[in-house]
Amino acid sequence: MTSNEFPFDISLTDVSKTYPLGLWKKKEAVRGVSFAVPRGEVVGLLGPNGSGKSTILKMSLGFIRPTAGEILVCGHPPSERQSRAFVGYLPENPRFQKFLSAKEVLFYYGTLCRLEKSELSKRVDELLDLVGLSDARAERIAGFSKGMVQRLAMAQALLSRPRILLFDEPMSGLDPLGRLELRRLIGRIHEEMPEATIFFSSHVLSDVEQLCASVILLSKGELKNFCRIDELLGGRSEAYEVTARGLPAEHSTTWGKRIRRSPLGETWSIEGTDELLAALNDLKTMGAQVVGVFSQRASLEQKLFGKTSVQEARTPEGVLL
C-alpha cells in the first residue's frame, strides 16, 4: 500500500512506551494507546503535563521507539527515513544555530529535505513572507525574540510542503500577542494547505478549542477520549448574554434574567433566539446602546474541568468526560 492509498496519516495501534528510571524502576509514559488521525484534520492532543503527549509525537517522528505496538506515518513506520519526508515538525522549544541568519537556517533545513536549489530559494522567500520574517531574513537568530524563533521554526516545518504537521506545544512560553500571532498562522496554514493534517499537542484548552476539529484526550499515558470538538461542546448553544448601557433609570424587562451590573452596563442572560431578538428590539426602543451579545456555549475548559477540582482534574477520572 502506497502512502496515498493509506487512509490515515498517523495511526497508533496499542502503543506503549516504558522509560527506565535507574536500574530497577520503570515509568510507563504511554499505555496501550490506539487511534488514527484521518487526512486533512486538525487534531489536538490534549492532556496535563506528564500525560504522554510529547512521547506520542516523538514516537511518531521515530525519535523514540515504542516498547510495544505499531505506529504508521502515511503507511510507513517512523523508523524508516521515508516516513519523515511527509512530516514537518515544530518542537516545543526550537533551537537553531545562533550564528545563522533566518534565510541560512531555511536553506540548511531545505537542503536536508533534499529540495533543489532553485525551488528552495523560491520556497524560502514564500515562507519568510508567510511567517512575517521577510524583513529579518538577513538577521542572525541570536537577535530574535522567542516569538520570531517560533515563527521561523514553523517556516522550517513547512519547507517540504509536508502532508503532516506535528506541533509540540507550539504556543509554549509565548506572550499573549505571540500566541495570537501563532494561532492565526496555524489557521492560515490550514486554509492554504487544507489537505495537510495538523496534529498538535497542548495543555492550553483555548488553543485547542479555537484551532482543532477533533481532540484526543490523554491522561497518565492512557487515551481517554477521541472525538470532535463540536460533539464535546454540545454543538450550537441557544443561550446568550446581552450587555447594554444607557437604559432609562426606571425600566422593566419581560425577557431574560439580569445577572450583573458593571461599568460596561447591565448584563442579562437570555434563553432562545426569539427571546434574544425581542430583547434587542426592546433595548433599541428604550434608547439603550447594546455593548455586546455573546453565545453562552460552554468552553472546552468548562466541559472538561467544570465540575472537578484541580486535583481531581489531574487524575485520570477527572479528565475522563
Partner: peptide, 14 residues
C-alpha cells in the same frame, strides 16, 4: 540536551 538535534532528525536524513 538542547534539542536542536530534533529539528535536524525530523528531516528525512539518517
Amino acid at each position: 540536551l538542547l534539542g536542536s538535534v530534533a529539528m535536524v532528525l525530523s528531516k528525512p536524513i539518517s
